[in-house]
Amino acid sequence: MTTSIAEGTLDSRITTAEPSVSDFLELMKPRVMSLVVFTSLAGLFAAPGQLHPVLAVIAVICIAVGAGASGALNMWYDADIDARMARTAARPIPRGRVTADEALAFGSVLSVVSVLTLGVLVNWVAGGLLALTIAYYVFFYTMWLKRRTPQNIVIGGAAGSFPPMIGWAAVTGGVSIESVLMFLIIFMWTPPHFWALALYRCRDYERVGVPMLPVVAGPDETRRQILLYSLALVPLAISPYFIGLGGIAYAAVSTVLGLIFLYLAFKVWRVREGREGDHAAKQLFVFSIFYLFLLFAVLLGEHIALKFQ
């Protein structure tokens, strides 16, 4: 053994035991996958037209596996910094359960299989968008920009915004204003969500040299950016009602939740010191998860109700 995991360095040959199936499942970031499944379902049901239920299930599985594959490739590339951050030190590679080479092979095979299966069995617009999402997340975000720019979260957020567009494309075979709007909602939601987390977790990122906004520009600038993105997000999240993508329930929920979101973002901007400052950031972080989940749940619910009327 040439290096020690505890010291924060990594050797792809280090393993303490044979990896189990659950280690590979963990590589796929199951929690991220569940959010991807949920938002892609919203795109799938909101899209006009019909997709055979078997093909719809295949589409969702492929999108979930593709997301899992990019998660595995992200863990492969980021294994060195994962080992040195409290939040990620227990991941399969830093723990020595899976070697970096195994993660690379696993992620690559799943990427190819998910894209080809979606393309061949559903349609190639959806397959192409999935390929773009994986390539964007792995090459553009993880390998190129994550460690180079404080805008990494804004750029990386685009990868997480594609699933509803892929779901929509699976049904319609194309891209439209409605699917772009769903993309934009997640895209604008990501920076305030992650920067709220980064505000009270920035020491971890500072230690490994990832230029998160609070580390590079300072907490005050981060708070200002959170407020600005929130001001852009809230009207954008209400707008599906005006183009007929969301109904009256969506309009009501997105307005009420949007006002709460703005209040919490404003609180993060105002309360800057000590525990109260951290508490405000945590409140916004937790609420932002609930906010996005509920927006898409209502959208999904409305369209399911319409389809089964």
Binding site: H52, V54, L55, I58, I61, V113, T117, L121
Partner: peptide
């Protein structure tokens, strides 16, 4: 499972 998916999708597509 992959084989099953291709089999099911083929049947669905042939039915269309």
């Amino acid at each position: 499972f992959l084989v099953l998916l291709f089999y099911a999708a083929t049947i669905v597509r042939m039915g269309n």
